[in-house]
Design a binder for these strands. Structure first.
Lengths: 203, 203
DNA sequence: GTCTTATGTTGTCACTGTAAACATTCCGAG
DNA sequence: CTCGGAATGTTTACAGTGACAACATAAGAC
């Protein structure tokens, strides 16, 4: 019975194979799917494992504990957010308009992926990420550096770029949080107005 | 043995009395104490009940479920935040300076009571609070109305008070969230600078 | 006094994250 | 090819969680 033995490819479980091709990635994908559908958390180890078709404790071969798994999901979220912002920046042609588009993209992401956004920013950021060197993960530090750079490029006349960057980030982050905690309604026009208020005239 | 039978006063348990004077309040107090000490959640029903010296299920006589208990704690947090802001407003003499002080108080509260602040704003805000009429609780709606009023009083020349209020709230809320999620460091001077940037010249 | 209601306790259930012991598969050295 | 670790998955079990039902006790009205 040597018909098409499953090597390390990304298929779900390969029908009764003992080893799963790439479980770590599959679990993360399942987690993202759960986060995307419904604001409810619902991401327990057993549920996640069932989605992938594997025993609950198998996940411990790939993550030291549940926190680590959530960290991985959070990282993925930050990556996606960053990608969306970069895309918005380019599409708007950079400069002041691009900066504003970046801010709106931030809030829109929070609105469209509330669970993922919250997870991404609520994680603890402990002393992990020591061994992985220049891996794609940090707690938003590179995001902040990009932001600082963006302030410099988009708003050349600003007097204190550090304060301005902090101001801009706080504004969109607060807007995002207030929206997904139902303190205010989602209203794209209003968001654009509020963001434009700052992102246009920080100086 | 009719020595000093415990009536409805606020003492902890009155030494072996079957009925507790005012359990609901005692549980809330215990919860606040736990929230104050250590950022760790650690507020399970059993732990809370043990703090008060009562069985875990006794809490169900005063709260329909754990969520309701957390809601009560969240309300208390909002109340305290509101009190601190009112105090800051008065101490600074109202107007523009008072408005700025209000914003700084908001962020400082989040920094000093991180767990309580997070709890207060992460709650779901369901359809509860229908029967209690003019009770002290809402999901920050009165806070927003007060804010709008404050914008009108403190910054009379602003063109769009609605957008300006939303802007101000988002700014301090984002600052608070970023600080207690360790995305940025707590720095009172910086906070004052950022807040002042908006709260002085929104128009 | 007795009856009713509010309050607290005990026992239990389903569920969770996690650890230990065991099974299976892969992969490289001889 | 064979064989022996090293990866990877499974089963079983345990302590802890929120919640419910049945029962016990106290407080207050009549």
């Amino acid at each position: 019975m040597k018909d098409a033995k499953p090597r390390n490819e990304s298929r779900p479980k390969a029908e009764g194979a003992y080893h799963h091709g790439d479980l770590r990635a599959a679990v993360i994908a399942a987690g993202m799917k759960r986060l995307a559908g419904g604001d409810e958390s619902e991401l327990g180890l057993r549920a996640l494992a069932r989605d992938v078709g594997v025993s609950a404790t198998a996940l411990y071969r790939h993550f030291p504990d549940k926190e680590a798994l959530l960290d991985a999901l959070a990282d993925e979220g930050l990556r996606r957010l960053g990608a969306l912002q970069a895309q918005a920046w380019l599409k708007a042609g950079g400069a002041s308009a691009g900066f504003k588009a970046t801010g709106i993209a931030y809030v829109r992401f929070a609105h469209e992926e509330p669970a993922l956004f919250r997870l991404s920013f609520t994680r603890k950021i402990p002393e992990r990420y020591r061994e992985s060197g220049a891996a794609a993960s940090d707690g938003g530090e590179t995001a902040y550096n990009l932001l600082r750079a963006g302030v410099g490029e988009a708003l050349p006349g600003v007097k204190d770029p550090d304060i301005a960057a902090l101001h801009a980030w706080s504004l969109v982050h607060g807007l995002a949080m207030l929206i997904l905690d139902r303190r205010i309604e989602w209203d794209e026009q209003k968001v654009a107005d509020v963001v434009g208020l700052t992102f246009g005239g920080v100086a």
